[in-house]
Design a binder for these strands. Structure first.
Length: 472
RNA sequence: GGCCCGUUGGUGAAGUGGUUGAACACACAUGCCUUUCACGCAUGCAUUCAUGGGUUCAAAUCCCGUACGGGUCACCA
């Protein structure tokens, strides 16, 4: 049987990196086996639907180099791929279930349920629907439906016994059937619940491996019961641990850069994000850190997914990103960095701007950082920190170095990197200063900070006039 | 609260009963290199695997309890 996996997001117009990681795992499992990766949109909660969310998902996955074999925008044999367009299918199978005695209509109103819940709460016992409607006679059911009463379809759970879920990551997980509630399959508005639709769709779409967050692990016995009722074969389950925020808490929109798009807009390369994420909760049997998508496809082994949750660490993501940026060709780098560079350069030559950006290729760890790091070239108001001021006064040679450098520079007929480097040499010979004592005074005096690109590059970019002024 | 899951350094993690006196990577620290910072390179950073018992000649690795963390108990997914 051909391996098929699916990414099944709710169209909320937002994708946090935990979701993305799940998609990556799903894609990798499918492609490792030479199978298909599908996209299914789970929009059965009409209240949470967001316009344009499908395009957003396509865009995100495309950026990440994850190719969708079948989905809403490129339908295959199993369409529609949007759950709200499959209502008839869910109804049809729900009817079958009722007929077979595995499900029943329930007329209990939300108010009734609320009252029951309250009662259970007072007694300090966990609430569980008591299945009262499962005892209704056929006649009564018909009568009430004909009378236009609202109802839902509930799954009938076994009262005793134990269900075992086989999971690739967590092994065999046992759950008492008695804790399983007669869950709602079809809501009163005719839409299916996730718990129901995912089973129907996964089967109908030929999904062989279900990969999802481990919050579904304890729900899975219910799904298995559904598969059994229909006589279908359950898929291979791969429940993956959560991705936690840096503070160790669950990821949320509040948790800063937890969204893929935020990261992307900050100037993180999708390849780097994917590389980072795939190593969160999964590890290969080698020490390799940098992976291309093709290498991952060849190497990915679902048996090596870890059980424990992992924390998202932006420092490591930055390291990956910096690595990927350095590996870009100069041309690709300029294309990448240019949109993030928002300072006004209208008065500058294109060549100067490119030289400026390229100078920082090896220093930048994400796109937006370019503006901060490059501000020394655009801010005439040089601020020197207290520590650096103290440094400038720490040796009597320093003023000499600065003065000599200034005077030599003034004599310089041309303004290019090589000549500037030579001047530095001349100053070294004339003053006897070298190393830190030679470079730091100039650097601090001219840029205000103690780090930056190669000094000649930096001086060249700052420009003759400015350099001379700042050295005074 | 019931049930389910997890717990190796600041972080990601390797490790599935015996040269592991616990890899590797990020971060951090130090040194080297580059006449400076950075880059790069090198070295250091858990006497110990949440904790207490047990099994065994031998346990991070198996078993039980405890603690802590998370998940789940919706007409949300």
């Amino acid at each position: 049987m051909k391996t098929r996996t699916r990414f099944a997001p709710s169209p909320t117009g937002f994708m946090h990196i935990g979701n993305l990681r799940t998609a990556i795992f799903e894609y990798l499992v499918a492609k490792h086996e030479g199978g298909d990766f599908l996209l299914r949109v789970e929009d059965t909660d009409q209240a949470r639907k967001v316009e344009g969310a499908i395009d957003f998902i396509y865009k995100t996955l495309e950026l990440c180099n994850i190719k969708i074999d079948e989905g809403p925008n490129n339908e295959g044999e199993c369409g529609p791929y949007i759950q709200s367009e499959r209502i008839d299918i869910y109804k049809e199978y729900a009817d079958k279930l009722v007929e077979m005695g595995h499900a029943y209509p329930c007329f209990c109103s939300e108010e009734t349920l609320e009252a029951m819940r309250k009662k259970a709460d007072e007694k300090h016992v966990p609430f569980m629907y008591d299945g009262r409607c499962s005892h209704l006679s056929k006649d009564e059911i018909k009568r009430r439906i004909d009378a236009g009463e609202k109802y839902v379809i509930r799954q009938k759970m076994p009262k005793d016994g134990v269900s075992v879920v086989k999971d690739v990551v967590y092994g065999n997980v046992k759950v008492e059937n008695s804790v399983l509630e007669d869950q709602i399959l079809l809501k009163s508005d005719g839409y299916p619940t996730y718990n129901y639709a995912n089973v129907i769709d996964d089967h109908l779409m030929g999904i062989t491996h279900v990969i999802r967050g481990n919050e579904y692990l304890s729900q899975t016995p219910k799904y298995n019961l559904l598969y059994e009722a229909f006589g279908w074969e359950a898929p291979v389950y791969i429940h993956v641990p959560m991705v936690l925020g840096e503070d160790g808490n669950k990821l949320s929109k509040r948790n800063g850069d937890a969204s893929f798009m935020d990261l992307y807009e900050e100037g993180y390369l999708p390849e780097a994000i994917v590389n980072y994420l795939v190593l969160l909760g999964w590890s290969p049997d080698t020490n390799q850190e940098i992976w291309t998508m093709d290498e991952l496809i060849a190497k990915f082994d679902m048996n090596r997914i870890s059980k424990s949750p992992s924390s998202y660490d932006i420092k490591k993501l930055r390291w990956f990103n910096a690595k990927y940026i350095r590996n870009l060709s100069d041309e690709d780098y300029l294309k990448f960095i240019r949109p993030f560079f928002t300072l006004d350069v209208s008065s500058k030559e294109e060549e100067w701007v490119n030289k400026l950006l390229l100078t920082y290729k090896d220093h930048i760890s994400y796109g937006k950082e370019i503006n901060d790091i490059v501000s020394i070239f655009f801010n005439d108001d040089i601020k020197i920190s207290k520590e650096n001021k103290e440094f400038l006064e720490s040796d009597e040679l320093i003023p000499v170095v600065i003065k000599t450098f200034h005077d030599e520079l003034e004599k310089l007929p041309s303004w290019d990197i090589e000549s500037i480097a030579e001047v530095i040499n001349i100053v070294k010979e004339k003053t006897g200063a070298k190393g830190k004592l030679l470079y730091m005074p100039i650097r601090i005096k001219v840029s205000g900070v103690e780090h930056g690109p190669e000094l000649p590059d930096e001086l060249y970019l700052i420009g003759r006039e400015n350099v001379l002024n700042r050295l005074k």
